[in-house]
Design a binder for these strands. Structure first.
Lengths: 250, 250
DNA sequence: GAATCATATCTTGTATACAAGTTCATTCTA
DNA sequence: TAGAATGAACTTGTATACAAGATATGATTC
């Protein structure tokens, strides 16, 4: 981007202006370094979801303020938003804690996904767009590769999300995928703690494959039962309670 | 509440303390007047949902600040939260506007409710708790009364919400009702603009009655089609576009 | 007269000082 | 020594001054 500029001093005091394609912008703008609020937000979210920041960990405003070289005000904005999305619990005058994993929320969200996907896949059954078929088959191939080369559950889960998201998109329900995303802090961390073994991954991929087949064939009845099984299968909160008791909300 | 107090001056300067049942509280606490953030929040939400604050209306921080006698900081907190729940759109350095009604969102949320309720009612079919039956029958009676005495759509819609909410509760899905609530700014305002006529209300009540019957009988098949019809029935965005074009998001 | 520039006046964004609540360790007192 | 009182050192909450962007209006310049 080419910037024509003109430095103009007014009243011997005022700050001069730069001109960018006729548009006037303050000089300071260019000097700005800064990590923006959005970046900080994304960064913290990532740290919380990956469990680097453990449930119950305290994140104080002043600490973040120093770390990101920003005043407390914008930091507070970020924390407020994280609280609304349940990444963080704010205890007034005490501190901000990374939220504990709420198994109730996990169960409810899984149920919601379950119900929604069943309906979405049934609506896709029969009249399935060809383009979508390619995307999903490609995704399944990647899942296969991921398993064979043992790239780990992390990568696989991303592919899994992409698979389901594509389904939502094809049915014109991307909006609802977004709704789900806003409530899955607990679900994502829960899923991560399960540390799925490879055999399990293979089984999941197999089910994905089957689902796709049923949809193409238009076999709504079998979709019904398989979706139900697909999402329920890996709930095992007892195991979780034992090993990660300190992460769980009481 | 009885307060024992002791005024203690330290260093001739420090502010004294009050004692409330052994608990130490600062003196200033009692002098605090103030409408709290929560109250302001509720107030603004009500004004927006009732369309007193029209979509597109500007609500500036300084204006609110003067109105509620609070500094901009807490006001900003409130606006941030309202923005996250889509009551308000924030345009940086320009202003905060009451959000326009987003028909896409309305359609998606109706679909979501549709799908969820179908599943929930089916799960209730057959094994319906007696207590719930009483509550719902009572609600239906109130709906009847509301129609006969022409108390208006406003009251009826509240009863309608209560009816559906009770269903969610009985199925142990209150959490998901909460999820829906967080996304229904557009839906509620949309519904309000329809200004349902009395015949329509009667029809809706009739359907509620029928739904309850089917559930008690355990007739899942008919639940399926009726729920579908029940929520779809009053979508008529063409009419809306004509009369309230300025309220709608483009 | 038209286009550009300057400025006043709005808006929200940020930094910062201070207020207020919590917690904990220390001091004082009985 | 036990227990209450006190203060220091945290935390977040609020008020406020100022920065920065947007916008409209009037001045300047050609």
């Amino acid at each position: 981007m080419i910037i024509e500029y003109a430095l103009i001093f007014v009243n011997e005091i005022r700050i001069s202006f730069l001109y960018n394609g006729g548009r006037r912008i303050p000089y300071r703008k260019l000097v700005y370094s800064m990590t923006s609020k959005k970046e900080i937000m994304a960064y913290l979210k990532q740290e919380i979801l990956s469990l680097e920041l453990k449930p119950g960990a305290m994140i104080s405003e002043t600490a973040l303020s120093e770390r990101f070289q920003l005043s407390r005000t914008p930091i507070r904005d970020v924390l407020k938003q994280l609280a609304l999305e349940q990444y963080v619990d704010i205890y007034p005058k005490k501190g901000n804690l990374v939220s504990y994993i709420d198994l109730e929320s996990v169960e409810q969200i899984i149920y919601l996904r379950n119900v929604l996907e069943k309906e979405i896949m049934k609506s896709l059954a029969g009249n399935f767009p060809l383009k979508g078929l390619h995307m999903l088959k490609d995704n399944l191939a990647q899942q296969q590769r991921c398993i064979e080369q043992e790239e780990g559950a992390e990568v696989f889960l991303q592919l899994d999300d992409q698979f389901h998201r594509t389904m939502f998109g094809l049915a014109g329900r991307e909006f609802l995928w977004g709704v789900l995303q806003q409530f899955n802090v607990h679900y994502i961390r829960y899923r991560k703690l399960h540390m799925l073994k490879d055999e399990k991954l293979a089984a999941i991929r197999q089910e994905h494959q089957q689902l796709l087949d049923y949809i193409v064939q238009g076999d709504t009845a079998r979709i019904d039962e398989l979706v139900h099984h697909h999402l329920r299968a890996d709930i095992d909160s007892k195991n979780l309670q034992e090993h990660f008791a300190t992460y769980i909300k009481k």
